[in-house]
Design a protein around this nucleic acid. Structure first.
Lengths: 216, 216
DNA sequence: TTTTTGTATACTGTATACAGTATCCGAATT
DNA sequence: AATTCGGATACTGTATACAGTATACAAAAA
């Protein structure tokens, strides 16, 4: 009869967290920008407390770090670290592939193919758009395992590699080619052979790393 | 000449976090216990703010959750979830095994064997002691990869589901036997065959799951 | 010029205050 | 006896206040 009046009951801190993460991903906040609690609080028109809680979380996730004058700034990821991230990704995503190959069903394959086609249909040709599509597709594999821990690790890992997604100057053609390689992953799952599926994803991820490192 | 006076510069929130996590692992705080900010603040003899920050982090890590009267309580993990945790562990630790097998050196093997022997040499024969030894050993494999992201995922995963409480009902003999199986993992690494190392760890972890589920 | 030193400034971290909301409980009602 | 209802209670979430510390900068000393 009546509309529910109960609020989504979301903490301000969580909303701030999401907005800040987005701002970092979108390049609204840049490395070397000084991130200050009071400044943000003013912009959000709230007190410092929830802002602080959001920043604390971002710091804990190693996305930002304490800066010179006390404030925070975006943490820059070294090349060495980027490689570590890619290995972590491999651990998660390749294992997911194994799981999927071991319990492959036509419905699963269909769904994955659908997601891929949907995501590959870019409306805009930018590095940003490429990353978004790529992430959507890769995430779909992990989602399909129905394992919330794997998914959480996936999200955490992907949220971190932020700096490079903005500055990477990837050749458009190479980008499109890499994006097109995802169907083959589904084929690997369809084979029903875990080790084959594993290897397919491993090579795909390594390709991505090389792509980013400009070692075409 | 003089002793440094600079404090370890640790936030109270972090110290509270550590102590609470420990209390949960040790069974000092039990499920259904009501966890209240003000109560804790009083016990720690600090204000509510840092306590709140620590609780927020524990909640974010899904270790605690909001309880009835507003406070928090330990989150209980379903059997389904336990399995998911074990799959997540497998993803991390089995991949680590692969990496180690691919770059195995005598020094590495030596170090792992040393850690294992050290840890197996229990000073106390309790479930808690077995649990700790087991964790130390498994962690050593991940540490050896020198990948901080893998290690972080390992720690997060273990902090959550693998509270010793879950092992409370496990037969001591079975546990001792499981503890002895770790040398074989090093042998698998020594073989230099990634897939073999992978499989060895996978089976070992699955054994652990069955042990915990009482399906001996 | 370079180095030292004092002081202002920009921040954080912690404490405290306050308002709001879900739960509980006991008395009133059926 | 079961249900409803009002108020007390137990908490949280957010705002504010305050003290402390690292940096920056300008003036003094070398």
């Amino acid at each position: 009869m009546f509309k529910s009046l109960s609020k989504p009951k979301k903490r301000l801190a969580d909303q701030v967290y999401e907005q800040l993460l987005d701002a970092i991903h979108q390049g609204v906040i840049l490395p070397n920008d000084q991130i200050v609690q009071e400044k943000l609080a003013e912009q959000f028109e709230i007190s410092r407390t929830p802002v602080r809680e959001a920043l604390l979380r971002l710091e804990q996730e190693k996305i930002i770090e304490v800066a010179k004058r006390g404030g925070f700034k975006i943490r820059i990821i070294s090349e060495r670290e980027t490689e570590e991230i890619y290995r972590a990704r491999a651990a998660i995503e390749c294992y997911a592939m194994r799981m999927l190959a071991a319990q492959s069903t036509p419905a699963l394959l269909e769904q994955l193919r659908h997601t891929i086609q949907q995501a590959e249909n870019l409306t805009e040709y930018s590095v940003k758009a490429y990353f978004r599509a790529n992430q959507t597709i890769h995430r779909a594999f992990v989602v399909a395992t129905e394992n919330r821990y794997l998914l959480e690790m996936f999200d955490n890992t992907w949220n971190r590699g932020t700096s490079f997604r903005l500055f990477a100057s990837i050749d458009a053609e190479a980008m499109a080619q890499s994006l097109g390689g995802h169907e083959a992953l589904v084929d690997a799952i369809a084979s029903g052979q875990p080790e084959l599926a594993f290897q397919a994803m491993l090579e795909h991820i390594d390709d991505g790393l090389h792509l980013q490192q400009g070692e075409l």
